[in-house]
Design a protein around this nucleic acid. Structure first.
Length: 436
RNA sequence: GUGGGCGUAGCUCAGCGGUAGAGCGCCGGACUGUGGCUCCGGAAGUCGCGGGUUCGAACCCCGUCGCCCACCCCA
């Protein structure tokens, strides 16, 4: 035997066991279907990029969190890196848009569901490898794009069974206008936004304290707090402000979409990423953090292309959605339960072929069928089925065989019924139907 | 990166100087045509790793690695 090694996956990464994968695929399937119904097309990009593609796109803090890949060969010892793991899905998209501009439609809408990596310190609910589900619309500055984005995201949440969500909406232009108006120098805008972003975590006093730590004068800080925390932004700026006008336009368009009633303008929403230029949005669910966020970034693609191309996107945090849905029991029985609808028992060695034939018939009926792999005490076979959460067990014993019947036991109620061979699949299907 | 806590059976943890424990899970039996409940039995740990103190270390000391919590940042 080799020495005992740690069998845990690296910190911040996870193995997905069958029950986990079933949940993930259910959510991904809903996400994909909705996005496609909104006209978004699939895109996949490599797990790693040239490091220069990523550096400088996520702010100073972001640079540190990029997973770098050492140069191979003789450079390996120097710590030099030329490649890096994908940090999000937006920057790779920007690269793709710049690279294939002639092949892509004028208005390019894509969705992308892939893992991203961050060299972060793992913490509760935070991983170094996690999935993002992104949609982005390239090529238009119209507020209609934001409205459609908000609608698609809302439709996903509604389909998954969320009803208590609010999408907070704000605008980078509004934020900077207000900071200007409060007298915060533009060199301190970024810091002020970071502080502001923590409002719901540290409260008004906490933000005030951090304003002070970041060297923002008392008078300016007090004004800023009044504008943001006390939500007077629209009144202060008036409808002639570009940002405010844009938010109003989005809110008007949202009325006709699935997002109606779920979007709320919130002047304290800041969001960390530095590349946003216009509207910014974030999903808030009662009692939990963000389930995703997004916004408009009209300059990012220009960093690759040399001329600006407008863009707006949204990223759903798959992991958090799954955590919340699991906590709240929001998965359908077929997903939350086991991966098998019915298990066929083996009566004895002579009847094995017949058990396989029965399994084939049940499978033809659209059922997920497992066959116990060997003849064993019936009690053990039932115990196994029970431990795997299999809802129905099929038995063809000597008595059943003599009458041309199959016995089906409902593992939940304990009730057992006999059915003619050709009716078994239908009977099991009806039982499962009642369950959900 | 800074501060604090914890590493003992597959899992959750007790023991805190004198030969390694419990609960849950697992395996077997009571029950050779029926799981969940109950009872009985069993397997299972170089007590994270390395060094030191001691007659004796899971326990005390030093180092190291890993994990967790807070700060930071984010989905």
């Amino acid at each position: 035997m080799a020495d005992k090694q740690s069998t845990k996956p690296p910190g911040g990464t996870r193995d997905f066991l069958p029950d986990d994968v079933r949940r993930r695929e259910y959510v991904i399937d809903v996400v994909r279907r909705v996005y496609e119904r909104y006209g978004f097309e699939p895109l996949e990009t490599p797990a790693f990029e040239n490091i220069d593609t990523l550096l400088g796109k996520y702010g100073e803090e972001g640079n540190k969190l990029i997973f770098k890949i050492l140069k191979r060969g003789e450079h390996e010892g120097t710590g030099e890196a030329d490649l890096a793991l994908r940090y999000d899905l937006t920057v790779p998209l920007a690269r793709v848009v710049a690279q294939y501009q002639s092949e892509l439609p004028k208005f390019f809408k894509r969705y992308q569901i892939q893992p991203v990596w961050r060299a972060d310190r793992p913490a509760r609910g935070r991983f170094r490898e996690f999935y993002q589900c992104d949609i982005d619309s390239i090529g238009s500055t119209s507020a209609l794009v934001e409205a459609e984005t908000l609608s698609a995201v809302s439709e996903i949440l509604l389909t998954l069974g969320f009803s208590d969500f609010v999408i907070r909406l704000n605008h980078r232009g509004v934020l900077s206008s207000l900071l200007d108006l409060a007298g915060v120098p533009s060199s301190k805008h970024a810091g002020a936004l970071v502080a502001l972003d923590k409002l719901d975590k540290v409260g008004r006093d906490g933000v005030a304290k951090e304003f002070a730590q970041r060297g923002i004068e008392d008078a300016a800080a007090a004004k800023a707090l009044a504008y943001f925390v006390d939500r007077e932004s629209v009144d202060v700026l008036g409808h002639t402000n570009d940002g405010v006008a844009n938010l109003m336009a989005i809110m008007e368009l949202v009325k006709g979409t699935r997002a109606h009633g779920h979007v709320r303008i919130d002047s304290s929403l800041a969001r960390g990423l530095s590349y946003y230029t216009g509207a910014i949005m974030e999903i808030a669910v009662e009692g939990i953090g963000s389930l995703g966020g997004g916004g408009r970034y009209d300059n990012l693609i220009g960093m690759f292309l040399g001329r600006d191309v407008p863009a707006c996107g949204f990223s759903l945090g798959l992991e958090r959605i799954i955590v919340v849905m699991t906590e709240r029991n929001m998965f359908p029985a077929r997903v939350a339960g086991g991966g098998v609808d019915v298990m066929v028992t083996i009566w004895n060695d002579e009847s094995r072929a017949d058990a396989l034939a029965l399994a084939a018939e049940l499978r033809n009926g659209g059922l997920r069928v497992d066959v116990y792999p060997e003849a064993d005490k019936l009690g053990k076979q039932f115990k196994y089925a029970s431990s795997r959460n299999v809802p129905c067990v099929a038995i063809v014993g000597d008595d059943e065989r003599a009458q041309g019947l199959v016995a089906i036991k409902d593992m939940q109620s304990g009730e057992q019924t006999a059915h003619r061979r050709e009716e078994v699949a239908g009977a099991v299907a009806r039982k499962l139907e009642l369950r959900t």
